[in-house]
Amino acid sequence: MGNLHRTIEAVWRIESARLIASLARIVQDIGLAEDLAQEALLSALEKWPESGVPDKPGAWLMAVAKNRAIDVLRRNQRLQQKLDEYGRVWLDPMGAVYPDFDAALARDIDDEMLSLVFTACHPLLSLEARVALTLKILGGLSTNEIARAYLVQESTIAQRIVRAKRTLSEAKVPFETPQGEALSQRLDAVLEVIYLIFNEGYSATSGTHWTRPVLCEEALRLGRILATLMPDSSEVHGLVALMEIQASRIPARSNAKGEPILLMDQNRARWDQLLIRRGLASLEKAELAAACFKTTFSPTPAIATDTARPPPWTAPKPLPLAPMHCRPKLPPVMPAPAKPPKPTGPK
């Protein structure tokens, strides 16, 4: 049973974001979409121990969620108007109107994923709420996992997510990707969230450890996903470059006693060369995109990557203040989070 539970968790991690994105496209409400997806997960937890994991677990979850969605829609007359607006519908023998799920599912999932990112990171929500919702909906993390990562009560996170979903629903925030001028402003709100998650992982504001790799890894994953969804965005590649390079230093950032080691004193042999190469590649993409689309991006990644380039290392230019390097700021687009003093004591 333990193994099966872990398998279901893995399936969920792979499928949940796409599942929610597809459902949100249909019901036009990411809160409802998330609830439907969760119900499908519960159903899997109930059925799979007996039936075994189906060959196509994603399709199975979608089928269950789709049936739940139809149930909900049947009950919810108000939603039907929305569905008419949505366009293609099919009529069942009873004459009720439902959205064409199969047509919705056949669409390119990238559009939905991007809309999901932008909706979860909507600036209408507080930063905290955006972070929680993003980790839940896009990262596929459980409320409990998020709470553990942030060292807060599970109920606190659950409440944040419920409120965020309600806020989006009440404000009738459309499930879409912003276009034109709105895009860059909204993108800032997205990057801010990813960077905040990374930064909390990279220099934890609470707890006894200096880093919480789970959050770094999650932020990196979100950044990498976003970079494939928005390959022309210099800002996205810039942020990914920054995170890859910063993450490359994690193994060298503290000693065996858990005490921090400043940049200049770090054993560079312990920097992760793979992440450095990936970071430099992302930086190149950022520069290329900036040149092609005449946009700009924060110079911070370029500064951070300077020290990651091959030797001579002795003088990163300009000789940086270590704290600034350890905790990069991305003004003006991304204010670094305010940090209370580091707790001391046994690590």
């Binding site: 872990r6 893995a10 792979i14 677990p57 890894e217 994953r221």
Partner: peptide
């Protein structure tokens, strides 16, 4: 080389 959360995720 993959970055995953668990062996199960890699298997899936």
């Amino acid at each position: 080389l993959w970055q995953v959360k668990s062996m199960e995720e890699a298997v899936e």
